[in-house]
Computed example of a mutant assay.
Amino acid sequence: MADRITANLPSRDFGATEAFYARLGFTRQWRDEGWMILKRGVLELEFFPHPDLVPGESWFSACIRVDDVDTLHTEWQAAGLPGDHRAIPRLTGFFQPGEAPRMFALVDADGSLLRCMGNGG
């Protein structure tokens, strides 16, 4: 297996988190009472229980880098998530903050922010 690093994000409820990410193409690789791993191709997210998390106050985040960010955005749009900047969960359109790479963002149902960009950026 190649070297790697994976995001570790909070989940108020593993069942709800798994259902949310299933809409985005992730499937369960591992789950017990203290840990869950979801995978979509080479993308892997790990979750730990955090039942008292307040989604609107979450500061958890991760970056997802893919070869084709436009296709990923199109596929995730099919989940029908709102784009309102206050909604949790939500999926944004593309933006480019300053000199940073062009990206879009996903905020999951627990308030975790995933910045999604191309591998070149």
Rank of each mutant, 00 (worst) to 15 (best):
R115H: 13
F104G: 01
V54G: 02
H73S: 00
L91K: 02
R115Q: 10
L9Q: 05
M117K: 03
M117E: 11
M1Q: 07
R40L: 07
R4Q: 09
H85L: 10
Q77L: 04
A2T: 11
F14T: 14
R65C: 10
S58T: 14
L38V: 10
G111I: 01
F95Y: 12
M117H: 06
Q29P: 00
G41R: 09
S112F: 00
E33V: 05
P55M: 06
I37S: 12
F20W: 06
M117C: 12
P101V: 03
G118M: 07
P89S: 06
R90D: 01
S112Q: 04
M117L: 13
D108E: 05
A19Q: 15
D32T: 04
M36V: 09
A100Q: 12
G93P: 00
N8P: 02
V66R: 00
C63R: 08
P101L: 00
H50R: 15
D70V: 14
A78K: 14
T92K: 05
H50G: 04
S11R: 11
G15D: 15
E75L: 10
P55L: 06
P101W: 01
G15V: 12
R90H: 07
A79W: 06
F14I: 14
R28D: 01
G56A: 15
M36C: 12
G118N: 13
D13Q: 12
A2P: 14
D84G: 08
A109G: 11
M103H: 15
P51K: 06
A7M: 05
P10T: 10
A105C: 11
D3Y: 07
L43Y: 08
L106D: 02
A16V: 13
A78D: 02
C116D: 01
F26A: 04
R31P: 01
W30N: 11
P82S: 12
L24M: 05
R40I: 08
G80F: 07
F14P: 14
R12S: 12
R12P: 05
H85C: 06
G121S: 11
S112R: 02
D70E: 15
T74Y: 03
L53N: 09
T27H: 10
R23M: 07
D13K: 12
L81N: 08
R12G: 13
G118E: 10
V66E: 04
G120Y: 14
A2F: 10
L81H: 08
S112I: 01
P10K: 13
G118I: 02
V42T: 13
R102G: 02
G118L: 02
T17N: 06
D108Q: 05
L53R: 08
M103L: 13
M1I: 07
A79Q: 05
Q29I: 08
S58K: 08
P101N: 01
K39T: 11
L81K: 07
D13P: 09
G25V: 04
F95D: 05
Q96H: 05
P97R: 10
Y21V: 07
L45T: 08
L43A: 13
L24N: 01
A79C: 07
L45F: 14
M117N: 02
G83Q: 13
C116I: 15
G111L: 00
P49I: 09
M103F: 03
G98F: 09
G56S: 14
V69F: 01
V107M: 05
H73E: 00
L91C: 03
D32A: 09
D84P: 02
T17M: 09
V42C: 06
R102V: 05
M1P: 10
C63K: 06
H50E: 15
A62G: 06
M103N: 10
D52K: 15
S112V: 04
